[in-house]
Nucleic acid binder design. Structure first.
Length: 370
DNA sequence: GTATGCTTTCGGC
DNA sequence: TTACGGCCGAAAGCATAC
């Protein structure tokens, strides 16, 4: 007898802003806005996240800081704080180790979310799962002073949507027999992978809700979106998802990006910043003890359009000069393909591998005959 | 025709 | 009226190999 899985998604509420509230409780009850200042002018930059009080004023992730200030100008209590990633990272690591202790298998996604497969420890019982979810919420609140929202469902897809249904400090259980009732009325764009562009196309096909999507012919979906995506949409609309909860390995790429003091097309100005970014990236490579096979760059132009280039090497590289030289080559190419000025630039390395402690011997490559 | 690998873009947080 | 970050993994798009 196949027992349904019991999967949870734990999402730490408005994480950066909540951590700031915990660090300085006197800002609780006020709008809190965590900002990424670019350093170009006083208020240039974007909002990383905000607490729910700030959100009532329309201050959400991604909007310009100056716009956030405008929207909050009548609230004299509003607090604007610079982002402190290392601190949030440290808090996240402690919280994640608390959560992990309640899982059969565990998969962290980003700094503030984790999937747990708890099928075995609740013996497939959603009633027990609810108690476990409450215990996790309690553990995290008592030990780290942070609230979270939890979704419990038969798979990752529905667990994620369940956790979104009620927040902050929410708990939403969707038993196997409730999946259809839960999903049907939701707008189609609540499915991961259906963003602005795809939902527009779906609307043109008269598909607005997940229910609409579920009753649409699979073959027709495949005609429109291709095999992989068509099947994915069809299955997702029915709440079907077999993807396992599995531990994620080390990060697969390391990147740094920065805003230039002024827009420019001057390769020397660009390379001065690019070399700094390359040094930072290289320092992280050394820290991790890894080499790389790919160097990529990104350029965000004056008009905020994004362009990127990359180059893959056949063998692993580890010199900072390779990063710098390749970056220059790629920035030169990119500038040649556009007449626009650059606003921000970034450097990225990926396809990372472990640096061997000693030089490998030929026998490691060709095998030994003895 | 399908699988594989590389480059570029997308989009979540 | 406009305003505008810094990451990351995944998807999409394309070329080439089988």
């Amino acid at each position: 007898m196949l027992r349904p899985r019991v999967v949870m998604l734990v999402d730490l509420d408005y994480f950066y802003a909540q951590v700031e509230e915990r660090r300085n409780p006197s800002i609780r009850g006020k709008p809190v806005v965590v900002c990424v200042y670019s350093g170009r002018t006083e208020d240039s930059g974007a909002v990383a996240t905000s607490n729910y009080i700030a959100r009532e004023y329309g201050v959400r992730s991604g909007i310009p800081i100056s716009l956030a200030k405008k929207r909050l100008k009548d609230n004299k209590d509003a607090v604007f704080l610079p982002i402190d990633r290392p601190y949030y990272q440290a808090v996240s690591e402690r919280i994640m180790s608390v959560i992990r202790a309640s899982a059969d298998s565990f998969e962290q996604v980003g700094i503030d979310e984790a999937y747990l497969d708890v099928t075995d420890r609740v013996r497939g019982d959603f009633g027990e799962a609810k108690e476990l979810a409450c215990k996790i919420k309690n553990d995290v609140l008592e030990q780290e002073g942070v609230t979270c929202s939890v979704g419990v469902a038969p798979n990752k897809l529905v667990a994620k949507m369940a956790s979104d249904a009620q927040k902050p400090d929410g708990l939403t259980i969707v038993k196997p027999e409730e999946v259809k009732t839960f999903l049907d009325p939701l707008p189609a764009d609540r499915i991961i992978g259906i963003g602005g562009k795809t939902s527009k196309r779906l609307e043109d096909m008269n598909i607005k809700t997940i229910s609409d999507l579920a009753s649409y012919d699979v073959e027709r979906l495949i005609e429109k979106f291709g095999k992989a995506l068509g099947n994915y949409f069809h299955n997702a609309s029915l709440g079907i998802d077999d993807s396992p909860v599995q531990e994620r390995g080390e990060v697969e790429s390391i990147s740094r990006i920065a805003t230039l003091k002024e827009n420019t097309r001057d390769i020397n100005v660009i390379m001065q910043k690019a070399n700094e970014l390359s040094d930072d990236v290289h320092a992280k490579l050394l820290e991790r003890g890894v080499n790389f096979k790919l160097v990529g760059i990104v350029m965000i132009m004056k008009d905020l359009t994004v362009h990127s280039k990359s180059k893959t090497f056949e063998t692993p590289m580890f010199d900072v000069d390779v990063i710098k030289r390749t970056a220059r080559e790629l920035f030169d190419k990119l500038l040649n393909e556009s007449t626009n000025e650059a606003r921000r630039i970034g450097v990225r390395v990926s396809v990372l591998g472990k640096v061997e402690k000693t030089q490998r011997r030929l026998t490691d490559f060709f095998g030994s005959s003895s």
